[in-house]
Measured scan of single mutants.
Amino acid sequence: EPSQADLDALLSAVRDNRLSIEQAVTLLTPSSGGGSGGGSMDAKEILTRFKDGGLDRAAAQALLAGRTPA
């Protein structure tokens, strides 16, 4: 399960175009075949909204942490 520091680094990389959204989703869902963790939004949607400015960093982190299976 990614830590808050991992999520923060991942969000920074996506925002700075050092990591594509697809690459980030793969890192967030290493063994689930890329499927959502059952959250209301999947990781790709969360990351896309964050990059487009629709979500701030704290909200994106909380959503990603919340949808990651324990």
Rank of each mutant, 00 (worst) to 15 (best):
68 T>Q: 14
34 G>M: 12
26 T>H: 15
10 L>G: 01
28 L>W: 03
64 L>N: 01
35 G>H: 12
3 S>L: 13
35 G>D: 08
1 E>Y: 15
14 V>G: 00
58 A>N: 10
44 K>R: 10
22 E>A: 07
51 K>Q: 04
53 G>K: 03
7 L>V: 09
65 A>I: 08
41 M>C: 05
34 G>W: 11
48 T>Q: 12
16 D>I: 02
39 G>D: 12
30 P>K: 07
47 L>R: 00
21 I>A: 02
21 I>V: 06
34 G>C: 13
66 G>H: 12
51 K>L: 09
68 T>V: 14
22 E>P: 05
68 T>C: 11
66 G>A: 11
23 Q>C: 09
16 D>M: 04
25 V>F: 07
59 A>F: 05
27 L>P: 01
6 D>Y: 15
21 I>Q: 00
42 D>K: 08
51 K>S: 03
29 T>G: 12
3 S>I: 11
26 T>P: 03
27 L>N: 04
18 R>L: 13
56 D>W: 02
18 R>V: 13
60 A>N: 00
15 R>D: 04
35 G>N: 09
2 P>Q: 14
4 Q>W: 14
45 E>C: 08
1 E>T: 13
70 A>Y: 03
29 T>M: 09
16 D>S: 07
65 A>L: 11
1 E>W: 15
45 E>H: 05
2 P>A: 11
23 Q>A: 13
31 S>T: 14
12 S>Q: 10
54 G>F: 13
30 P>G: 09
24 A>E: 00
68 T>W: 13
54 G>P: 02
38 G>K: 08
5 A>L: 15
22 E>C: 05
36 S>R: 03
57 R>W: 14
46 I>S: 01
66 G>K: 13
26 T>R: 10
34 G>I: 15
59 A>S: 12
26 T>Y: 09
52 D>T: 07
24 A>W: 02
41 M>Y: 08
65 A>S: 14
9 A>H: 08
43 A>L: 15
53 G>V: 01
24 A>L: 03
11 L>F: 05
57 R>G: 04
25 V>P: 01
18 R>W: 07
52 D>I: 04
13 A>Q: 06
1 E>R: 10
5 A>M: 15
57 R>K: 15
30 P>E: 11
21 I>N: 01
